[in-house]
Design a protein around this nucleic acid. Structure first.
Length: 471
RNA sequence: GGUCCCAUCGUCUAGCCUGGCCUAGGACGGAGCCCUCUCAAGGCUUAAACACGGGUUCAAAUCCCGUUGGGACCA
């Protein structure tokens, strides 16, 4: 059994796209499961659109989602000699020919054919002319067989039959000497010994163009698997106008990389009714056979749910770690110096089932830094009233009597006071909540007190009483 | 225009290959109830789909043909 070798081959023409990540992920999972090799190849032959920043963005994105590669990144621009030499080999074998037709001529002839209702493919004018490229401005075309059919046993879609008679004589080297996409891909896949080409649906019709080139060069033909596309909510191909499509944008929006992977893998793949998978489970259970044949719509709401689940099930210390850069970005660098990792993790536990993203979590967590807290005006007006001030004072006195904080003791004392005063729990809890957190919504009151500690709890309570008296 | 792909709740999907267990299951989102110091989380309940038309068969979401509708590629 030969070792599985797969690749992810993005073009560096922008950031790393969500759809690209999923393609990479499926390849990666397949490789890891088969104990194969996962290769990263940068298809940068289109020099007008390729940039080094994009290559960096791809690498950064891949690292963030934890898709590590075993070989590469290879760059096609460093392999130009290979494409040219193999093109010459085809020429020598009579499998390719120089074509001197100019773009304008081709255009005109195509339009003419269209008007007559004929096929619009290349008319084969130079096919048997035996031209040389002395002027250096001819393009090299592959002589595609016009007989029989090309059969693709697609790993995902099943058997697909293409009639060779409709295949065009593809240009493989442009007149400027650059290889075309379909040609460089074949040469790379062949030379890198790729065993399984797993790529997007959009390449399906490229497959019967590529297979004959493998064959003409005497290379073994890899197996193919075509993944369904990811569409935007309007069923159009996922693009900028659907909002964020860059993988790193999701990092900035507070998504966890494992959540992204889990969401993306379920877009087009399933394993019974299971929704959440560990990486290990994915590697074990992944199968191209269970990949969907139809396109999927990207659904931000489900992604949000998956992320919320990951925030809940991840180790608090890990979530805390991922949260730190966002806290710093929110201007809490100084406050962070004063707290321990353990305390931060404790804080995460308090808010982890309230925040669906790390960005939301930053907001939840803000009130627990610093000595004082800024109070929401409306909350103050509504709950920190003169009427409640006396009861708050009594509560403060009772709390002060305790030399240390104890959740059970303080809660008991609180409830006792509520009973004595004949008020409802909420009537006292809300004012205290506003005093301690500045807001009307927070985790459980006594959890809040615990994370604040005795001194800050008492301090903020006094401040609250102050505010209540002066409203 | 040519070639190819696709079609189960609004969305992701199970089931389809190997027809009967499907009065079509799960999840997100929606609605309602419960829990409750607030907000969440959680629990329970609920609405919601086999694109359409033929055929094959005792029986079709499942097999075959067609139609329609989406999409991709080439140009």
């Amino acid at each position: 059994m030969t070792q599985v070798r797969v690749r992810f081959a993005p073009s560096p023409t922008g950031f790393l796209h969500i759809g690209g990540v999923r393609t990479a992920l499926f390849n990666w999972l397949f490789a890891r499961q088969q104990k194969g090799v996962f290769i990263l190849r940068i298809e940068d032959t289109d020099q007008s659109r390729s940039t080094d920043e994009s290559i960096q963005a791809i690498i950064e994105g891949m690292r963030w989602v934890g898709l590590d590669w075993d070989e590469g990144p290879y760059r096609q621009t460093e392999r130009m000699d290979l494409y040219r030499s193999h093109a010459m080999k085809l020429l020598q074998k009579g499998e390719a020919y120089w074509c001197a037709c100019k773009a304008e001529e081709l255009d005109a002839r195509r339009k003419e054919a269209e008007a007559k209702g004929l096929s619009q493919k290349y008319d084969g004018r130079c096919r048997d002319r035996g031209l040389t490229n002395l002027a250096g401005d001819a393009a090299l075309r592959f002589k595609a067989s016009q007989e029989g059919e090309t059969v693709v046993e697609d790993l995902i879609k099943g058997k697909i039959i293409f009639d060779n008679a409709v295949q065009d004589d593809l240009i493989i080297l442009r007149s400027n000497g650059y290889p075309t996409y379909n040609f460089s891909v074949v040469i790379d896949d062949a030379l890198m010994n790729i065993t399984h080409v797993v790529r997007g649906d959009d390449h399906l019709t490229n497959t019967p163009r590529q297979i004959p080139i493998f064959q003409a060069l005497g290379f073994p033909v890899p197996q193919f698997g075509h993944l369904p596309m990811i569409l935007g909510p309007d069923k159009a191909r996922l693009s900028k106008r659907h909002g964020a499509t860059s993988i790193m944008a999701y990092k900035d929006m507070g998504y966890l990389p494992d959540a992204m992977v889990n969401y993306l893998v379920r877009l087009g793949w399933s394993h019974g009714d299971q929704e959440l998978f560990t990486r290990q489970e994915l590697i074990e259970e992944f199968s191209l056979k269970n990949v969907q044949t139809s396109a999927a719509l990207f659904n931000p709401e489900k992604l949000l749910w998956v992320n919320a689940e990951y925030i809940k099930i991840s180790l608090p210390a890990q979530v805390a770690q991922a949260l730190v850069p966002l806290l710093e970005a929110a201007g809490l660098t100084e406050e962070l110096q004063a707290v321990s990792d353990g305390w931060l993790a404790q804080l995460v536990v308090l808010v982890k089932e309230r925040a669906k993203t790390l960005v939301e979590m930053v907001d939840w967590v803000k009130p627990y830094f610093g000595q004082t807290v800024t109070c929401d005006d409306e909350a103050t007006k509504k709950f920190l009233t003169p009427a409640i001030a006396p009861i708050l004072s009594k509560l403060l006195t009772r709390f002060e009597a305790f030399p240390a904080f104890s959740k059970q003791q303080w809660e008991e004392a609180f409830k006792q006071l509520v009973e004595e005063e004949g008020v409802k729990m909420g009537q006292l809890a809300q004012p205290v909540r506003v005093a301690l957190t500045g807001r009307t919504a927070s985790p459980g009151l006594f959890d809040v007190m615990e994370v604040l500690g005795r001194d800050r709890t008492l301090f903020r309570l006094r401040q609250g009483i102050e505010r209540a008296t002066h409203t």
